[in-house]
Amino acid sequence: MPLLEIRNLSVTFDTADGPLEAAIGIDLHVDAGEVLAIVGESGSGKSVAMLAVMGLLPDTATVRADAMRFDGTDLLALSPRARRRLIGREMAIIFQEPIASLNPCFTVGLQVGEVLKTHQKLGRAARRRRIVELFRAVGLPEPEAKLAAYPHQLSGGQCQRVMIAMAIACAPRLLIADEPTTALDVTIQKQILDLLMDLQARTGMAMIMITHDMGVVAETADRVMVQYRGRTREEADVLSLFAAPKDAYTRALLAALPERAGGGSDLDGVAFTEEEGA
């Protein structure tokens, strides 16, 4: 049984201009310990599907699916309270903008501590020890001192490390990383990716890596799903996809990689139809 299984997921937003379909008929499954990359350009619906899994979409969104199961539990049938017991503990998420994702009014120690307080019955001292342990695990320098630091006192990379510490605090079985390196400097990107992969290898958690960067896909994923305009275009294991992409859009994405770009690979203005490359 897959850890996460989604069948025919559609997400529609109510907008002033009428309904907007952000994800259409997405099928997805992730096994325990597997790393799945969802790749696609902005607006392709890759984040929306994962926010739907976490139950983090705004009220204007309508989520429909034939099935959405986490470890056999039907997510669609869960009460909000039962869902809250699951998220943050069994499945966690980190976002694209680490600085904006942390509350500027509270210390990072408190913000990580909140997850532990919500999901684990730890005493104050034990919680503090666990936060320091987590900060050390994600490579934050001076972990003890960082407990009292506010987000604005940390760099973007350090904030992302705090976000990762928060996400792995309860040893989740699934970590969703939504463009975790996009907002960071190139050198820091590499460090954060290495950290994520190291944590994944050590804990054996499953990971969904949402990205628009084929380089990140190649470095991290076991399996890849290519999304375009709310629909899944291709799904394959990472080696097959890079070796023999079947879909025209996937081929164009791969051709846009700097090391493969030989000209004629400009994605601008290219519109892909349903039939092409399928």
Binding site: M54, G55, L56, R84, G88, I93, S101, E114, M163
Partner: peptide, 11 residues
């Protein structure tokens, strides 16, 4: 975003 993070913690 930080409100979304708070919700993502299961608060």
């Amino acid at each position: 975003d930080y409100v979304r993070t708070a919700r993502a913690k299961g608060l």
